[in-house]
Each structure stands twice: as structure tokens, then as C-alpha cells.
């Protein structure tokens, strides 16, 4: 008893005891799968039998046009979500913090609700809204403007309208909340002094809000880059499965799932996963270096 107590109260040991759960979960749920994923990407796996095939999977990957389509789709999707999902939520957050906005709590809740709904259900609703049938919501809307119905989910740009709308509908509220919390941390006296100096609303936004909210922006960009690259479920639900016409909705993770789970080729799927990891790492490191995150904080 006393020994255990001594151990727990020891200044040297206690820190390790406290970080142990984190270290363990990191090792078991992060390091182990990562390492075994790397190893598996060099193997053929068939019901417990593993054979090393060297770089075969990687060589095949770069000739695989489905994979290339998947990478291009994912990168494009990530880029478009960044373009949409940083400025719009930021703007909404600024509006939300404005003195002129009434009933802020209500707006925040409304904006946040989509994030709480299941993608399975929202994907299904979007699939019905954008169905090629004459009676679908979108085609009825077109009919209202005397336009012919469109097979929304069969051509890329119309399908991507659905995909991006689904993404915006779902995540705008979340990103907005990040920005709201970032805005709350800005000292109001800065705005007051800007007012005294005669700054306009735009100048205040440009020279006070934007620089001071940078850490939040970097965080939101970092998670959005990964979320964009790793998108799968939205596309899976919108097309009711992993196959979309001419693969317009195929993403890297969708392809990983197709290979690993649907076609029972876990080795190849791991190679796909490795490429995803490398792309996400490169983009994020470039972004973090460019925004100066690794620089020592100026004192």
C-alpha cells in the first residue's frame, strides 16, 4: 500500500503514470497500425498467408488509372473545400460576433445541427434531392424555370455541386464555431484603439482580426486538408455505394476501401493508404512552414 502510494506520489514517477494512458493509446491505436500498414503495403495478404512482393504494389499504383482519378478527385475536392470552407465560415463568425446580430445562440445552434446528423441519412436525402428522376427536388426546381431535367449524379460538375453542398451544409457550422472561439480571444481594446485611429470596418477586419485569428485559421486549414483528402462517406452515400459513373466520385479512401474490403486485396489497399498519408503530410508541412508555425515564437 505505502509502496504504491510512494510510487504514485513520487515526483519522478507520477508524470509517467499520468501520461501512460496517452502513450499506450498512441502506441496501440496509432503507431502499431501505422507500422503494420507500412509492412502490409509490401505484402500480398490472403487469409493469413503473407508473402513479400517488394515494390510491386507501388509500381502498379502509378499505372492504375482508377487510382490516379481517385487522387485527382481527392486533391480537387480538398482544394475546393478549402476555398469554400475557410472564407465563408470566417465571414459568418464575424457576423455572429457583430453587435448588430440578434439571437446569436439560435443561429449558432441552427448552423451546428447538420454536423450532428448522420452522413448516412443526409447522404441519402441529398441523393434523393439530386436524383435524375423528373420528380426530384432539384429537377422540379429546374422545371420551375422551364429547364429540362438533368442527370445530376452522372456528370462531374453537377455531381460535385451536390457533393460540395453536402460538405458545406454539414461542416460550415463547425468551422464557424472554431472561428467564433478564435474571435472571442481577441482583446476588444484593440478594436477600440483602431476606432480612435479612425479605422474602417474593413481595415479593422484586415489589420486586427485576420492577423490575430491566424492560429485558428492554420488549425482549420490543417484539419480541412486532411478531411478533404480523406473524404469517403459523403461520396459513398451520395452514390449509394462505392461506384459512381466514370468514377466522378471516387476518392483515395474510397479506392482504398474498394481494394482492401471489396476486393480483398489488403496489401494493395495499404499502399494506397501510404500514398494518401504522404500527400497529406507534404501538403500540411508546406502549409505549416509557409505560415510560420515552426518558427520560434517571438518574445
Amino acid at each position: 500500500m505505502s509502496k504504491v502510494k510512494k510510487l504514485l506520489f513520487s515526483q519522478k514517477v507520477a508524470p509517467f503514470v499520468f501520461v501512460l494512458p496517452f502513450v499506450l493509446s498512441l502506441l496501440i491505436f496509432w503507431a502499431y497500425p501505422l507500422i503494420s500498414g507500412v509492412i502490409m503495403s509490401f505484402q500480398d495478404i490472403n487469409f493469413g498467408n503473407r508473402t513479400f512482393v517488394g515494390l510491386d504494389h507501388y509500381q502498379k499504383l502509378f499505372k492504375d488509372k482508377f487510382f490516379i482519378t481517385a487522387v485527382l478527385n481527392s486533391v480537387e475536392y480538398m482544394f475546393l473545400t478549402l476555398v469554400l470552407m475557410i472564407p465563408i465560415p470566417l465571414l459568418l463568425a464575424v457576423l455572429m460576433e457583430s453587435r448588430l446580430t440578434k439571437a446569436k445562440g439560435v443561429w449558432k445552434v441552427i448552423m451546428y445541427i447538420p454536423a450532428l446528423t448522420s452522413v448516412v441519412i443526409s447522404g441519402m436525402l441529398f441523393r434523393m434531392m439530386f436524383s435524375e428522376a423528373d420528380g426530384s427536388q432539384m429537377n422540379q426546381l429546374l422545371a420551375f424555370f422551364n429547364q429540362a431535367p438533368i442527370a445530376w449524379l452522372k456528370t462531374k460538375w453537377t455531381a460535385w455541386i451536390a457533393l460540395l453542398l453536402l460538405c458545406m451544409w454539414r461542416w460550415t457550422g463547425v468551422n464557424m464555431l472554431y472561428f467564433v472561439s478564435g474571435l472571442k480571444a481577441i482583446d476588444t481594446s484593440l478594436y477600440e484603439s483602431a476606432d480612435i485611429d479612425g479605422a474602417t470596418a474593413w481595415q479593422k477586419f484586415r489589420y486586427v482580426t485576420l492577423p490575430l485569428i491566424k492560429p485558428t485559421t492554420i488549425y482549420v486549414i490543417t484539419i480541412s486538408v486532411y478531411a478533404g483528402l480523406a473524404m469517403f462517406l459523403e461520396s459513398f452515400m451520395l452514390w449509394n455505394g462505392n461506384s459512381s459513373p466514370k468514377n466522378i466520385g471516387l476518392t483515395i479512401v474510397g479506392y482504398l476501401y474498394k481494394r482492401g474490403i471489396e476486393k480483398n486485396d489488403l496489401g494493395y489497399a495499404c499502399a494506397v493508404g501510404m500514398v494518401l498519408m504522404v500527400i497529406a503530410l507534404i501538403i500540411n508541412i508546406v502549409q505549416l512552414v509557409a505560415t510560420g508555425t515552426f518558427k520560434k515564437e517571438e518574445s
Partner: peptide, 8 residues
């Protein structure tokens, strides 16, 4: 740590 561990 607990939050990070349970997040994934």
C-alpha cells in the same frame, strides 16, 4: 490526453 485518446 484523455480527449486526444478518445477522439479517434
Amino acid at each position: 490526453a484523455a480527449m486526444a485518446a478518445t477522439m479517434p
